[in-house]
């Protein structure tokens, strides 16, 4: 078990390192930050000074080693725009993003899974068809279209909710809705097929043949097995808690991590973008670890590969 945890952690750290390296190289090969920061008309000596100030004159490998050294010391660099610490810039945006993504995730789970399970239990009923249609609708509409439609209806036509900004809880309603509808559709669809698959398994027939009431067959025998594939998808959603709101934050001018990504990338604010990618990669990796450990809890077959006899 300890070896298992150790291996998983090692793999997680390796993943983060790869993301960091990739981001570092790509960012440096895809445009000159000095040009972008100082503008196309900047004098050559200003550009040279900028480059020397941020260390862009060194060879790439030396810059990279310096960067790794900094990270190990807990220094994530400073923004080239205003000199404030990159990690502070990122962290102060995180709560605003979580204020959207966490409620959205709760909505996805609370509506998507029950709807999918209900549809699977009542196959080919009107409710099942309704769930299928609604979920297709949910995950085929891109969020920028959905966001604009919601604004059109609730803000412009009926003037019920604000169309942007972050002043009150009412401002969060439309972004949260926009974000959750697609996820609800995907989860409903996925839970439905996971559940249908499980209900067709021989052990469900065994549980019924035993004389268990249908409720218990569903709760004790079907759901724990259907949970395994559903957890994978939920883990993926958990991983995008930080980075999953780029489009929605832009539509509703919500000052979260997503907006920071857009602005920093456009400005080639290297330290901030790298720091953002690091935080995002860490979230995904942690979500993945959680999924792996949950698998072990849910399915004893995944705990050890070796049979006991």
């Amino acid at each position: 078990m300890i070896r298992f945890v150790f291996l998983k952690l090692a793999r997680a750290l390796l993943t983060i390192l790869l993301v960091m390296t990739f981001a570092f190289v790509v960012l440096r090969l895809s445009g000159d930050p000095a040009q972008i920061m100082l503008g196309p008309d900047a004098p050559q000596d200003a550009i040279d000074a900028f480059r020397a100030r941020w260390g862009f004159d060194d060879p790439l490998w030396r810059q990279y080693l310096a960067y790794l050294g900094q990270i190990l010391r807990g220094d994530f660099g400073v923004s080239m725009r205003d000199g404030s610490a990159a990690i502070d810039l990122v962290m102060e945006r995180v709560p605003a993003t979580l204020a959207l993504t966490v409620p959205a995730l709760v909505l996805k789970l609370a509506i998507g899974i029950p709807a999918g399970v209900y549809a699977a239990l009542h196959r080919e009923s009107i409710a099942d068809r309704g769930v299928i249609m609604a979920s297709i609708f949910g995950f085929t509409i891109p969020s920028f279209v959905l966001g604009l439609v919601l604004v059109l209806i609730f803000s412009i036509t009926f003037d019920l909710l604000p169309s942007g900004g972050q002043d009150t809880w009412r401002h969060a309603i439309l972004p949260i809705l926009t974000m959750s509808i697609g996820g609800i559709g995907i989860l409903a669809r996925f839970s439905r097929s996971a559940m249908i698959e499980v209900l067709g398994q021989p052990y469900i027939r065994t549980a019924m043949a035993k004389g268990l009431p249908w409720r218990d067959v569903v709760w004790r025998h079907a759901l724990p097995n259907a949970a395994v594939p559903i957890v994978t998808l939920v883990g993926f959603m958990l991983g995008s808690l930080i980075a999953g709101a780029v489009v929605v934050e832009s539509i509703f001018s919500w000052p979260g991590v997503g907006r920071l990504i857009v602005v920093s990338v456009a400005n080639r604010d290297l330290a901030v973008v790298q720091c953002l990618l690091l935080v995002i990669a860490a979230t995904m990796v942690i979500a993945n670890l959680l999924v792996d450990f949950t698998y072990g809890l849910l399915d004893p077959r995944l705990r050890s590969a070796r049979p006991a006899h």
Partner: peptide
């Protein structure tokens, strides 16, 4: 449901997948 298991029990062809793995 009262009859199943109590009066008439049933076992199946594929024993390994007839038991709940979890």
């Amino acid at each position: 449901e009262k009859v199943r298991g109590a009066r008439i029990a049933m076992i199946f062809q594929d024993p390994s997948s007839s038991l709940n793995p979890v």
